[in-house]
Simulated scan of single mutants.
Amino acid sequence: MQASLEIDGGEELTERQKDVLNAALRLLVEEGDRLTMTAVARRASCSKETLYKWFGDRDGLLTATVQWQASKVRVAPIDRARIDLPSLTASLEGFASDWLSVISSETSIALNRVAIARAGSDGHGLGAIVLENGRMALARRLKPVLEAARDKGLLAFDDAETAFRSFFGLVARDVQIRLLLGDGLKLTEAQIGRDAALATRQFLALYGANDNRDEGRRRKPPSS
């Protein structure tokens, strides 16, 4: 299930608003964070007044745009009372697969390059928006799953942030930095599936409680 995304008033995004955010993403790729409300309005064939009504100011539009991209990384809903190893594994593999698909897309590569180039130039630019609404938002989304699994005795850890960072690192490895530096690495759907399964298996080997650690070591990623 894709994470819901809302505008300032609390309403879920309409298809038209999603079209506007996709237009803003394309402009970010082309122009960096120098994009203007005027340019977005022109590209999306809507008025600036509509943009201000929906998203507030330019930073609000940038924030919604990054959130829209990050929302493509889904976390499967879980029943805290019934979570078990298969449902935990499926949730982690799905998250890892979505995240690898997103970070390897041309849009995300370009967006992150722009954010890195602008990092430190001011205290509230695109870099800060990407960090807060990308990586930090993903942590807030997955930590409840990890904590629910810990409460059921499936995982063992003291700090959810540390556990999340470990999983994030196992999923990302050196993939994102290689892509950002121009490596011609191409991730196929099959490769993403194998990498997601491997990262999940390694995470369970590190953090699985009791027998789950052994299960994580034994479990093999699917063949292509």
Rank of each mutant, 00 (worst) to 15 (best):
L187G: 00
K53H: 14
A23N: 03
P144N: 03
R218C: 00
V130N: 00
G10T: 03
A139C: 10
I192R: 15
E31A: 11
D158C: 05
K72F: 08
G123P: 02
R42N: 12
L51I: 07
A137H: 06
R201T: 11
D151Y: 04
A70D: 13
E215L: 10
L204D: 00
N212M: 04
S223H: 12
L100R: 00
D122W: 10
T65S: 05
G9R: 14
V73K: 04
S4P: 14
L62I: 11
D19E: 15
S91A: 15
D79N: 13
R178D: 13
L5V: 12
A24E: 03
D79V: 05
R82A: 13
L126T: 02
I78H: 11
L62V: 06
K18H: 08
Q202F: 12
A137E: 12
L180H: 05
G32L: 06
L181W: 10
R135G: 03
V29T: 11
A41C: 00
D57S: 11
G120N: 05
A156F: 10
T107W: 05
E93F: 05
T89E: 14
M1A: 09
R201S: 15
A137F: 08
L126V: 10
Q69H: 07
F203P: 01
A24T: 10
G123W: 13
L21A: 02
T89D: 12
L21K: 02
N212A: 09
E12Y: 07
L206T: 07
T14S: 15
E6N: 06
G120W: 05
F167A: 03
M1N: 05
G125Q: 02
N133R: 15
V114A: 14
V114H: 15
E106V: 07
A163N: 00
L25P: 01
L27N: 01
R16S: 09
N22T: 11
S91Y: 03
T14M: 06
E49H: 11
F95G: 02
S121Y: 06
G60L: 09
E215R: 14
L92I: 06
A3Y: 05
G193L: 08
G10N: 07
C46Y: 02
